[in-house]
């Protein structure tokens, strides 16, 4: 019997064939993430006159298995920003912890809540700052060939307290637009949102209610057509007054009438 720890619990070669123990070899190449494991699907967001509405469903899939059904993929930071995470859930959790410690470090030197006259302006992390930081982090990780497998939307306010919405992906690519969607949403939800906010001016005319309605409509379409989506979702509205986050919303007024005419959606006899 081989008592070396490396051999503990391993199947015997003479019975099962050579065992690939490469992952235990300290001199071998480092294994970085090659593909995401537990994943979240689309995140959608749209700007309106005073802020941003952002939504994502509460599902974390394991391949095609709907594995975790109450995962909150919208996360609030510094009480003023919501980040929506698509892609790998463990990387999302890593980023969540990382940003939490960043926010704690920031609070050490936070000036008083109502700084006395003549004091320095409030130092705080706004959405634009967080987005820049995350984009640099994602780019640095892709440059190490060890990417954080996420596509993020950052919703909040910029330095001038104007609505801010921008995306960053696992390659460090960034872009900003009046409406954004990740994953399937970029094909299914983005055309709907662009009808209401084709440009910044149009987005600036949208009311909060209109923006929420559009996003809810998008979540419904995504649930109809994205097989890795869920009817339970989170939605957040970010404005100057803070973050209004609801984490247990249900899709309303679904109508599957359209499906009857489509082969593969339901029971079909011919």
């Amino acid at each position: 019997m081989d008592h070396r720890p490396q051999a503990w619990g391993r199947p015997r070669d003479d019975v099962y064939g050579a065992y690939d123990a490469s992952f235990m070899n300290p001199n071998g190449p480092n294994q970085a993430t090659q593909s995401p494991i537990v994943t979240g699907t689309s995140v959608v967001a749209i700007k309106f006159s005073e802020g941003v509405v952002i939504a994502a469903d509460n599902l974390a899939s394991y391949g095609s298995l709907a594995r975790f059904t109450d995962v909150k993929r919208l996360r609030t930071f510094a009480d003023s920003t919501v980040i929506g995470f698509g892609g790998d859930v463990s990387d999302m959790q890593y980023l969540d912890r990382h940003l939490t410690s960043l926010a704690i470090d920031e609070s050490y030197s936070a000036p008083s809540l109502d700084s006395d006259a003549g004091g320095p302006p409030k130092a705080r992390l706004n959405a634009a700052n967080l987005h820049k930081y995350l984009a640099k982090l994602l780019y640095a990780r892709r440059s190490k060939f060890d990417p954080l497998w996420n596509h993020l939307l950052v919703a909040g306010l910029d330095d001038d307290d104007k609505p801010f919405l921008a995306a960053a992906d696992l390659l460090g690519t960034t872009f900003s637009a009046p409406s954004l969607a990740t994953g399937f949403g970029s094909m299914l939800a983005q055309p709907i949102m662009r009808r209401f906010a084709p440009d910044e001016e149009a987005a600036a005319r949208l009311t909060r209610e209109q923006a929420v309605d559009v996003v809810k409509q998008c979540m419904k379409v995504l649930f109809y057509r994205d097989a890795r989506s869920l009817d339970s979702y989170s939605i957040a509205v970010v404005t100057k007054d803070g973050v209004d986050l609801k984490e247990n919303e249900k899709l309303e007024n679904q109508s599957w009438a359209f499906a009857e005419r489509i082969r593969g959606y339901g029971t079909q006899t011919a």
């Binding site: 019997m1 490469s22 070899n25 190449p29 970085a32 593909s35 892709r142 060939f145 990417p147």
Partner: peptide, 29 residues
């Protein structure tokens, strides 16, 4: 203490065909 068949430890990750497995991640777009 041991003689006879053993537990083998190969070095690098390989595919089922025995070829070296390459990184699948593409850093460009």
């Amino acid at each position: 203490v041991m003689n006879g068949p053993n537990y083998s430890f190969s070095d690098a990750p390989r595919t089922a065909n025995g070829e070296f497995r390459e990184h699948r991640f593409n850093p460009y777009s």
